[in-house]
Write a protein that binds this DNA or RNA. Structure first.
Lengths: 346, 346
DNA sequence: ATGCAATGTGACAGCGCTGTCAACAAAGCA
DNA sequence: TGCTTTGTTGACAGCGCTGTCACATTGCAT
């Protein structure tokens, strides 16, 4: 029952002693504060490296009244989305020696705002990243802004003054629709995304704009409501494929629903892409793992996560507050991934 | 440029004042320490509730020399696996007011042990959860044990003395194989899992045991090496389906590889399950999203994450150290999910 | 040289909590 | 009844760091 020789971790004092300076100077170097002479800085950095010193987060957090953590808020996203995003965010955090706290919440929770604000306060979370559909909750955005909590949103509605990392959803949907039209389709159906997500509207708008600009009418019954999950996609597909004159192409607002369309087509022995072309949105791994490969819009989720975290961390580094109305919007490029599900054979 | 009316969060002093006791007593109640009179405890709890008090983690961490965080170590798992597991772990952490720190590492990193130990020390992580294949790194397990860092493993090799949450991998593979045999197959091929994972061996063993006990020989060339990812599954499937006398059933060691088999079959116009039955392992969402639905073994990953976190937190609560050789192993039930990919039609 | 701002550095308090230990109350025992 | 034992509570130090502010040093113009 040896009580573990918990050899004391190296502290700022050790570093200060070794470098022959005061702990405050070490603190300055660690926190990249100005007004440290280059020579001093080097000495300290050498000592840090030699002792392999890493500041104690609890002590830092207590003294500075912050946690050196940012929060990631999400509501039941697809595992692929979450894993990718998280990986990007984590990377950015790691670079800046920040921690990441996860907080799964519910968009429809009536106490959402209070829950989040209280969580941030009591954990001294320094900033938060919001993912859809939370990015579209005006009350939440307002509360965060008003409470002076630095935040960034992923793929937001673009409204609100939080910095954002996003793609041009409408343009992406527009181009995908054009791809279908150019491939020769005219009977194109669309499965809408979850109405809670602002992006759903943008994707729909892009679709409609392409149809209109190309002079292709949208047949009655060709706009179906979906909710971004497989089951809703399946239902929508089922209705579309039961239509007396069914579409020759279906554009679903995300990959899960597109996969469901292909699933339904398969089980009705409808050939994809021969009799039905299918397109999705997101480029999740799923799109490469089903057959035929799913044509979709690639969103660099991981990169967006990284960017968004960067935005929050920059805000933190800069003003130590979300005061100055920085309205950064990082728009990253999407890419059409053309795969088998829209292949035009003949 | 208002400096944010960061209304001071409620502290232990506020609670103590309101309850008319010393802060130490509040601390006792919060930490469920013994020797507090019931009446006192109630007073304190009332005050806590009324003020909506939650202890400051940084202060707690600093004073108690621990972080009230556990770490989740993983090496590039599938997004589905990670998301599920994490969700379970997070839930358990939440219940006990613990935080979760994520740490993606690399199994093949030569400094793995040092990296992990140092991370745990410097972040004062209180305990860790390991996921495959890290669970199979003897040096890592030994280091954690020797350094007295409470840990639990998910689906471990069962060796080592860390508590574990696992399923009977071999039995699951055995039963799945029997399912294929009973369905009338005799030409059954097997795609092995990543050799770094101990579970791969168990699944293979279960397969072989079933074949042997049913007196079904394994044809030459019917054991293929895979690495748990789609690409490797695709290569293995490709080789198997190119065989002069190809299998009528393929059992892949996980869903990603099984999906790849189905993909390959589709692209060669081989009917699944008519000409080729396919079985996987894990029951990821993918298995329901491809066509035909994938027969697979359901592992309750989320529940296992919850359990594993519970094991670590219990250790923490109990001995405040990993001293007493607790060798808990929670074995959870698996379930055969029979879907279209092994349907026996005729 | 001399003065004065700009720059660099350190002493020290204290962040909110837990561990230690001492004080005191209640209960058990002879 | 006095004494020990056990249970309950509080005073206080200090965890490792940052913020504040005072002081030391430098650069530059005079």
């Amino acid at each position: 029952m040896v009580k573990g020789n918990h050899m004391r971790a190296v502290t700022i004092d050790d570093v200060a002693k070794k470098a022959g300076v005061s702990i405050k100077t070490v603190s300055r170097v660690v926190n990249r504060e100005p007004n440290v002479r280059a020579a001093t800085k080097e000495k300290v950095e050498a000592a840090i490296k030699e002792l392999n010193y890493r500041p104690n987060q609890s002590a830092r957090g207590l003294a500075a009244r912050r946690s050196y953590m940012i929060g990631l808020l999400y509501d039941n996203p697809s595992p692929n989305y979450l894993a990718n995003l998280q990986s990007g965010v984590l990377e950015a955090c790691h670079e800046k020696d920040y921690g990441l706290a996860l907080n799964p919440v519910s968009f429809h929770d009536p106490d959402l705002v209070e829950t989040v604000v209280h969580w941030v306060r009591q954990s001294s979370i320094d900033g938060v990243i919001l993912t859809p559909p939370l990015t579209d909750s005006i009350p939440l955005l307002e509360a965060l802004s008003q409470q002076n909590i630095p935040s960034a949103v992923i793929s937001s509605r673009g409204t609100g003054d939080a910095p954002a990392a996003l793609i041009d959803e409408e343009e992406a949907a527009y181009e995908m629709t054009r791809h279908l039209i150019i491939s020769g389709h005219r009977d194109i159906a669309f499965i809408k995304g979850h109405p809670d997500h602002y992006a759903s509207g943008l994707r729909e708008k892009g679709f409609l704009r392409a149809m209109e600009s190309e002079g292709v009418p949208v047949a009655p019954g060709f706009m179906e409501q979906g909710y971004f999950d497989f089951a809703s996609g399946q239902e929508a597909a089922s209705r579309l494929l039961d239509l007396p004159k069914r579409p020759t192409a279906i554009f679903a607002s995300n990959d899960d629903m597109a996969a469901a369309v292909i699933f339904e087509a398969h089980s009705r022995k409808i050939d994809v892409p021969g009799e039905l072309a299918v397109a999705g949105f997101d480029d999740t791994p799923l799109s490469r793992q089903i057959w035929p490969g799913l044509t979709t819009v690639r969103q660099p989720i991981r990169a967006m996560g990284h960017q968004a975290a960067g935005l929050v961390l920059d805000t933190l580094a800069a003003g130590k507050g979300a005061d100055e109305e920085r309205k950064d919007v990082i728009q990253v490029d999407f890419e059409l991934m053309i795969r088998g599900s829209t292949a035009t054979s003949r």
